[in-house]
């Protein structure tokens, strides 16, 4: 559907460095990355705002690298809405329809339909300046999808909104995608958005695509320290690994972790906090890794509790509030922790 081949673009402050990406028809594709990673310039280049310095961009097999934005059939939504302040909501939503050869009545019908879908029908005669952020973003989305673009580009569409609005609009985006099946590229730095919406994720850093995959894969199997750091894997250690037959033994700061990933030499190892078992008694299980230590820190996250257990190195362990209370754990409690060799990730 969208093929980006070796695209580079240098804007001084931001840049793209040899980006290659293939996005499938109908896919909800997330581009995840920290601020300044080049996410916005990537989608602005896809939209045709910038000419790449080199590389080609294909839409539906057609080379559109030299095509004007207006001829690419692309819808665009920015973080700060970019609604035209001098036009009413109705004129804003209908803006892109003026260039299509349809009658005034058809335009009105389409605008009403899409406004209804996004719940902004009652705002059509208002001016954008008088509306809330959530309302403005719904209108911006309506304005982009009313022209039935082949590709929808969303640049941090939820970042400027408060938490509650973000949650609701996120569901809305998912619903619109299910209805329209429009290929969507959604740029964000929020994991929640990435995991709840994305069919696939590309992680970007300093102008490069670092990893592409299903959200689960990227989260569980980061291919570099940058991604592990960025996606916030909390138990991330460095060590020396030795391979024995079917396992690796990783020596990190005086403890030895067994991993089923085979890799030797200097490695990074990560274990997700929710993959670690915790108990006050010694754990009798198939888990290859078992350590004992003291609870050094308790972080109440609402339904979830995160503990830091010092077993020589600090492990972050996550468990539900319920089991935390059932087990009568507290700061200073002596505990055992265990996790499977397959729960570790070596890179």
């Amino acid at each position: 559907m969208i093929r980006i081949e070796n695209v580079s673009k240098d804007l001084g402050e931001f840049k793209l460095d040899d980006v290659t990406l293939h996005i499938h028809e109908g896919e909800y594709f997330i581009i995840l990355g920290p601020t300044g990673a080049g996410k916005t310039i990537l989608i602005e280049t896809i939209a045709g705002i910038y000419q790449p310095d080199c590389g080609r961009i294909f839409l539906n097999g057609m080379d559109v690298t030299d095509t004007l934005p207006k001829d690419r059939s692309i819808g665009m939504v920015y973080q700060d809405y970019m609604l035209f302040p001098h036009l009413t909501v109705e004129k804003n939503i209908g803006f892109g329809l003026r260039h299509k050869k349809i009658t005034r009545n058809e335009t009105k019908t389409k605008v009403n339909e899409i406004a209804d879908l996004l719940g902004v029908l009652h705002l059509l005669n208002r001016y954008p300046g008088t509306l809330s952020g959530g309302e403005q973003q719904r209108i911006a989305i309506a304005r982009a999808v009313v022209t039935e673009p082949k590709v929808l580009l969303l640049d941090e569409p939820l970042s400027a909104l408060d938490t509650r609005t973000t949650g609701r609009l996120r569901e809305e985006l998912g619903r619109i995608h299910r209805i329209t099946k429009t290929t969507t590229i959604h740029v964000t730095h929020s994991f929640e958005e990435a995991f709840s919406l994305g069919d696939r994720i590309a992680v970007m850093g300093s102008g490069q695509i670092i990893q592409v995959g299903a959200p689960d894969d990227v989260f569980r199997k980061p291919n570099s320290e940058f991604i592990a750091d960025f996606v916030g894997v909390e138990n991330l250690f460095r060590g020396k690994s030795v391979v024995h037959d079917t396992i690796s033994e990783v020596h990190a700061d005086g403890i030895c972790i067994v991993s089923s990933t085979l890799k030797s030499g200097d490695v990074s190892i990560s274990i997700r906090p929710e993959d670690i078992l915790i108990s006050k008694k010694e754990i009798d299980s198939s888990a290859r890794n078992s350590f004992s230590g003291q609870i050094m820190e308790v972080k109440d996250m609402g339904a979830l509790v995160k503990l830091v257990v010092d077993v020589g190195i600090p492990f972050m362990v996550a468990l539900t509030k319920r089991s935390y209370e059932d087990m009568e754990l507290a700061y200073g409690t002596h505990v055992y922790i265990a996790f499977k060799a397959s729960a570790t990730h070596l890179f």
């Binding site: 665009m76 803006f95 260039h99 304005r143």
Partner: peptide, 12 residues
């Protein structure tokens, strides 16, 4: 970006 959006909406 106002102009960018307008361009994606069919404007030269």
């Amino acid at each position: 970006r106002y102009e960018y959006v307008a361009q994606t909406l069919g404007c030269t």
